[in-house]
Amino acid sequence: MSAHKITIQQIADRLGVSKYTVSQALSGKEGISEATRRQVLETAKSMGYKQRRQVYDREAPQTGIASDAATSPYVIIWIPYRERGETEFWQRVLSGIVAGCDERNWEHIILSPYDYQGRLVVLPPYLDTSTCLGGLSIGSFPLTTIHAYVQTKLPVVLIDHDERFADLDAVVNNNLEAAHLLLTHMAESGCEKLIFVGQDHFSVSFRERWWGCKMGIEALTGTSGAKISLRKWSIPYSETDWLQVLSSMLDRLEPQDWPHGFIGANDHIAMELQALLVAKGIDIPAQCKVAGFDNIRSAGSASPPLTTVDLGKEELGIRAIEALEKRISHPDRPRERISLSPQLVVRLSC
């Protein structure tokens, strides 16, 4: 078999591991052991695997993108700058996309839709779009950016974001169902007073998780007559001082206002909240319970291990590539929204 046809799936099948494990090893990312990484690299070399070019960016517009793209079909991946270095969620979504591209022998180019002066440029002038198959947009972007995608006339799939007015396919996590699962579990664990901690305008996911918690309260109080209260703390999560703000909010809580449980809008918030509570002498879960969303790797090793909801990461990327391929083949079909179901992961924090 020729080198360029060896795929990540074939390497994974040879070793009996997942495509994600192979992708992480080949791209040099964390999350696997060094022994596994060496085994994957040695197997890939013995099978004649040809490493595909990983990332292009505005930082180096003279990297030969145009000439490469002219000979190979490629996909544009738009991702905010702020998410580039985040390894627990967005890099895992990206790994799923890369694995899907590799399976199809597609190249991929990673860009921000904005230049360093903040100007909207979804298709830089140095790109040759003649062999561009389409685009994938990771995370939340303003409606003006989504409309700019539409104006490219390329097939585009939104990932973890949905904009119905743009008539674009979307692959998302079911945050409403995830929040309902989590809130129901906390209520069954004896929590009658809850506080949700997040920042609405940080992401669509944060807003949906808050809405899902409110819907869960309405469902529980309506069917069982349970008396459950839910408040929201809005923190400046996008700012560097958000932890100090959260700590001050905890300090100002009156004894009668202390909740039975906190829900973080994501695992990062929940784990930092846990650390603050422990530092203030609060016993988790005896005095207060804590839970989050996403099931990032470090959630299982938190102190105590964090109860959370497992949401799609690699699977988001894989399903997005499948949706893009389907859109390329059937450009006139109605818009499709693919929603991935969550799974509750119960640990010691609740």
Results as ranks from 00 to 15, higher is better:
2 S>H: 14
21 T>I: 12
23 S>K: 01
23 S>G: 09
33 S>Y: 13
39 Q>S: 12
41 L>K: 10
46 S>W: 06
48 G>C: 12
49 Y>F: 09
51 Q>T: 11
55 V>G: 04
56 Y>Q: 03
67 S>A: 13
68 D>I: 13
72 S>G: 06
73 P>T: 14
74 Y>H: 06
75 V>E: 02
80 P>R: 15
86 E>N: 10
87 T>E: 11
88 E>A: 15
88 E>I: 05
91 Q>N: 14
98 V>W: 12
109 I>W: 05
110 I>R: 07
115 D>I: 06
117 Q>P: 00
124 P>M: 09
130 S>F: 08
131 T>R: 15
134 G>L: 07
135 G>E: 03
144 T>C: 06
145 T>A: 11
146 I>S: 00
152 T>M: 05
154 L>A: 08
163 E>I: 08
164 R>N: 11
172 V>D: 04
175 N>T: 04
176 L>A: 05
186 M>E: 04
186 M>Q: 08
197 V>D: 00
198 G>I: 04
208 E>Q: 15
210 W>S: 08
218 E>A: 14
220 L>K: 10
224 S>K: 11
226 A>K: 10
229 S>W: 10
239 E>K: 14
240 T>H: 13
243 L>A: 07
248 S>T: 11
260 H>W: 03
262 F>M: 04
263 I>L: 15
269 I>K: 00
271 M>V: 04
271 M>H: 03
277 L>S: 07
279 A>I: 06
281 G>H: 06
281 G>Q: 07
282 I>A: 11
289 K>M: 15
294 D>S: 06
298 S>M: 15
299 A>V: 02
299 A>C: 07
300 G>H: 06
303 S>L: 13
306 L>S: 00
310 D>C: 13
323 A>C: 11
323 A>K: 04
334 P>E: 09
336 E>W: 06
345 V>W: 02
347 R>V: 07
349 S>K: 02
